[in-house]
Write a protein that binds this DNA or RNA. Structure first.
Length: 574
DNA sequence: GCCGTTTTCGGCCCGACTGTTTTCAGTCG
């Protein structure tokens, strides 16, 4: 058996919290275990490096003893006791909407419900509605929830949710009583997977906005419709819950902050408010002694009130942002971006000509760009061989004369073959301005084989960047067996840049890993990998992911001048 | 269960909505 790691311990604490919830325990005791789990997660050290767990804030004497027991014996007597008391089949039922620990405890104690099957049976027999505190409606809701459980994953990929959100935003634009609106929630923080959508709406005519919202197409079910909250389920490719919060314009900033979260960030903010004798709610900041409520023009003003610089949504995860943003924090922003180093044209599988892509990049105000079509190995994408790449280069040279305001690099996204060879030899590669190495085949190879390929690419003096290093597609494909720690170290050693692919299907490297790359001093290129005009705009999303990884402008090569970029390239070749 | 230069006991983030109720518990974000 593998030695215990921190993840095991965190999982143990979370599991204990779940069981306690089912027992209807004191909610503060439950949250104490969750806080302890979170404290461990935030601590940078590995399990063996921590000497005294009770030194960590959120972990006291009791949890420390539990941890010691777990490390020594691999077991927890508390969890064993809980498991003896509470059937484990109840745990997954906590996911059903409307069912929390207390109600489930009642179902278990009074109807002996122990899992989904027995719950279904009891609902169908009408036993649930006869229970005190339960009614016909609750029973029907549980039945429906069981039927629908498993029809969609709990969280959906951000790419899918971004496009659904855009459709909803288009509808909101048409409601004239809306003064302003914004998306909130985890999608605004750019998490990779999203559970539901939240929109904050400022209006002084909530009644009529509410009516318009309920008129929206594709509403499958109205969950709630109060004075300030409208909740619906939309029938799209998946069923998606959407919440709308209706507030006045002066409440907008605090409501937006509140529903952007994260929950942990909000808790931290509220603790800070309390320390200065105030209370934060979605409607403003109240002075505890006078009761006077202050509202804000913007989230920036709200943060300023607490002595903080504006914290971008992507960083609101209670990972030290409250401490960091008392000072000026340097983070990459879109206006610093001077170019895009990965895009395709009709020469391979793109939608536009080289010239069209140049015009689009000029429109975006870029100073440089790289044309990087696929290489010959990738036949399905009409990859280019040496001859076609030379012809494409001739065309690029012709266009350079026509568009002197932008530097156009003639490049390639070259396949790294399954056997570890590169798709072109060095003699040809040196003709190109910019070579990307990428894996598009044999994803099921072992880690050793994958790393051999990636290292072979990075060892080559002409390969300046590894594209979408993990090969994952969020929610649909795991990616190949890359050892990212090793990849980052090797990139550092070989002066190779790594990509943050800005396509929301990929976000590869992820925020977590670009952060590690930055720590190790590996430069990151944020690229759209655009195959058409629209996807050149993924830069916006890519920048947000970069900020989620706390990337500074100097880490991001697209903020460099073309000369700085060339210097870096030269360093590798010499 | 955790925490404390105001506290070793009494707090712990705050508010909306539903469904079940006759004044509110439970759930959710």
């Amino acid at each position: 058996m593998n030695p215990l790691n921190k993840k095991d311990l965190i999982q143990l604490l979370e599991e204990i919290a779940l069981y306690l919830e089912l027992k209807g325990e004191n909610p503060f005791r439950i949250s104490a275990y969750r806080k302890a789990a979170q404290a461990l997660e935030l601590d940078e050290r590995s399990l063996s490096e921590i000497e005294d767990f009770s030194q960590i804030k959120g972990i006291g004497k009791g949890t420390q003893e539990l941890i010691n027991e777990f490390i020594e014996s691999g077991q927890s007597s508390l969890l064993s006791e809980l498991k003896a008391e509470v059937p484990s089949g109840l745990i997954p039922l906590l996911r059903l909407p409307g069912l929390g620990g207390k109600k489930l405890a009642r179902l278990y104690q009074e109807l002996n419900i122990t899992d989904q099957a027995s719950l279904l049976k009891a609902c169908e027999a009408g036993e649930v509605s006869s229970l005190k505190g339960f009614g016909k409606k609750t029973e029907a809701n549980i039945l429906q929830a069981i039927k629908e459980s498993g029809t969609r994953p709990e969280r959906l990929p951000i790419d899918y949710m971004l496009s659904l959100a855009r459709k909803i935003e288009n509808y909101l634009e048409t409601i004239k009583e809306i003064e302003k609106f914004s998306i909130a929630g985890s999608i605004r923080r750019m998490r990779e997977t999203i559970k539901d959508l939240d929109f904050i709406i400022a209006t002084d005519q909530p009644e009529s906005v509410k009516a318009s919202l309920l008129n929206m197409e594709a509403i499958k079910q109205v969950i709630s419709q109060g004075d300030t909250k409208v909740s619906v389920t939309l029938a799209d490719q998946y069923d998606v819950a959407v919440d709308f919060r209706l507030v006045t314009a002066d409440q907008f900033a605090t409501t937006l902050h509140h529903f952007t979260g994260s929950k942990d960030h909000n808790v931290a903010m509220r603790q800070r408010a309390k320390e200065q004798g105030e209370k934060i709610s979605e409607y403003g900041v109240a002075d505890l002694s006078t009761g006077k409520v202050t509202t804000f023009e913007s989230e920036a003003d709200f943060f300023k009130h607490f002595g903080l610089n504006y914290i971008p949504p992507e960083l609101r995860e209670a990972k030290g942002e409250l401490e960091a943003f008392t000072e000026e924090v340097s983070l990459v922003s879109e206006d610093q971006i001077r170019g895009d180093l990965h895009m395709h044209t009709t020469w391979s599988d793109g939608a536009h000509s080289v010239e069209e892509m140049i015009k689009f990049c000029l429109d975006k105000g870029y100073q440089y760009m790289a044309i990087t079509d696929h290489s010959k190995f990738l036949r399905v994408a009409n990859g280019l061989n040496e001859d076609r790449l030379r012809k494409q280069r001739e065309e690029i040279e012709r266009l350079r004369a026509l568009y002197p305001d932008i530097t156009i690099l003639a490049g390639v996204e070259m396949d790294v073959l399954p056997n570890g060879e590169l798709d072109f030899d060095d003699q040809f590669l040196q003709e190109l301005d910019f070579v990307i190495g990428a894996i598009h085949s044999s994803f099921n190879q072992s880690e050793a084989e994958i790393m051999k390929r990636l290292k072979a690419a990075m060892d080559n003096p002409y390969v300046k960047m590894i594209a979408h290093p993990s090969g994952r597609l969020i929610g649909t494909r795991e990616g190949y067996a890359v050892n990212l720690d090793e990849l980052i170290d090797y990139a550092k050693k070989t002066h190779t840049m790594l990509e943050l692919n800005a396509n929301p299907k990929r976000f590869d490297l992820s925020a977590e890993w670009v952060n590690k790359a930055q720590e190790k001093g590996v430069p990151i290129a944020i690229n759209t990998d655009a195959h058409n005009k629209k996807t050149l705009n993924y830069m916006t999303e890519g920048i947000k992911v970069a900020r989620r990884g706390w990337l500074k402008p100097e880490t991001v090569v697209n903020t460099w001048s073309i000369d700085e970029l060339q210097n870096f390239f030269n360093k590798k070749e010499n």
